[in-house]
Design a protein around this nucleic acid. Sequence first.
RNA 1: GACCCGUUCGUCUAUCGGUUAGGACUCCAGAUUUUCAUUCUGGCAAGAAGGGUUCGACUCCCUUACGGGUCGCCA
Length: 448
Amino acid sequence: MDRGDSRAYTTRMSVRTRFAPSPTGYLHVGGARTALFNWLFARRMGGSFILRVEDTDEARNTDEARQAIFDGMSWLGLDWDEGPAKGGDYGPYFQSERREIYDAWFQKLLEAGRVYEDGGAWRFRFERKPVTMHDLVCGEVTIDYRDESNTPDMVVKRSDGSYVFHFVNVVDDLEMEISHVIRGEDHLMNTPKHLQLIEAFGGKAPQYAHIPLILNPDGSKMSKRDAGAAVGDYPRQGFLPSAVVNFIALLGWSSKTDEEIFTPEELIGRFTLDNVNRAPARFDFEKCKWVNQQHLLKVAADDFAAASKPFVEAAGLAIPENFAAIAAAVKEKVRLLGEVPAAVDFLIGDGYSHDEEAVAKVRANAAAKELLGVLAGSFGSIDDWSADAAKAALNEVAKAAGAKPGPLMFPLRVALSGRGHGPDIGDILNLLGKDRCAARVRKFADML
RNA sequence: GACCCGUUCGUCUAUCGGUUAGGACUCCAGAUUUUCAUUCUGGCAAGAAGGGUUCGACUCCCUUACGGGUCGCCA
């Protein structure tokens, strides 16, 4: 592989960011946001985004976790320019395959007398002095390495011959010519260690930007099992990738305007490290769902129907011929695609349940039962059953029965759907068809 | 415990010395929708506390409190 001057020259001024997860669990929203910020920054600056898998801990790595990272990032739309399945001039992109590279760099430390053996492992000897970092988010932070009790020399090579995170991370960032390291604040205290290593190597340090962590709604650290923690859960619940990207971008970053709903492209156009906050943000699932609804509102009806289909099927409902129309009727009523099955079940089969509260409300209305009875009997005489016509016909029926149409709407809705909320009543009438409507209204009237 | 970072409505945030401290989510009320949702209008709700600096502080400094992070042959 040629690593001559030409490449060094052309990449000198270019931005290269990376996401470096270790495949020891599923992809976490915190990790996803770190990846997102790196991706946004690289895209914004016209640079490259690299995916590097830090799989040095063989005991904890799993293939499932590796796949979860790829799947999660692909789903979110965070495409990488270099990395697994993509290649690039700085590979390999799995640390487990970079052994020779690490050995060579370790040799430099050895020759420089910066490491010493301790119990079979090798420790890096820190220079005992204050180390200052210039973080793009945190500003200037100084850690005093003269205080040895707080900064013991770190192990860089284990007694089994493998290398630890700090070492491989620094070597790879140098080797891959990473220009900006954007990572979680939990790495802030590691940075002076990395700076010392880089100095010992005689390398040029990348710019660092430590972003605040994401917390649970109660302020505790967000970890596995917490609601919303696993990126893999989002598709299952019916979130749109663009909505999740939008929402997690808002955690710790602000456009500094009143706008909140952005497409990924719009985020790229606005993203800057300057607008990243310092304080950790709590994860508000309700707002995440609202953001999803806003994105759902913007998708085309056909796409909404197609995206809803798998959820409806998974709920055990058969897809009817008029499914596109059914989906369109509930498009504006749901926040998640996962809510679609429960919203359309009564339009597909007869196995839907009745909401007791809604039924009780109708029962409390003495006139409802009689009115519904009249209504059921008159359906047969209505010829045009389009949504608008069906609604118009309601007026006539109500008038004939000496009642106003308004008060009839709610009982009819409950009679047809079993609940108080749902699609437009005209849509329900039309989607259900005249016969099913008559049967349901009659049955419901008898039930009262 | 030591060392770092942080602290504006319940939550996400705007404000970069002078504002009736703005927006969004949630919640409540009203309008529209003959119904539901959408939408619109209005409302509730905040500068952790105490000292400074200043004509003037949410904004700058200090202290305390609280929260988070780091102190591994994990990453």
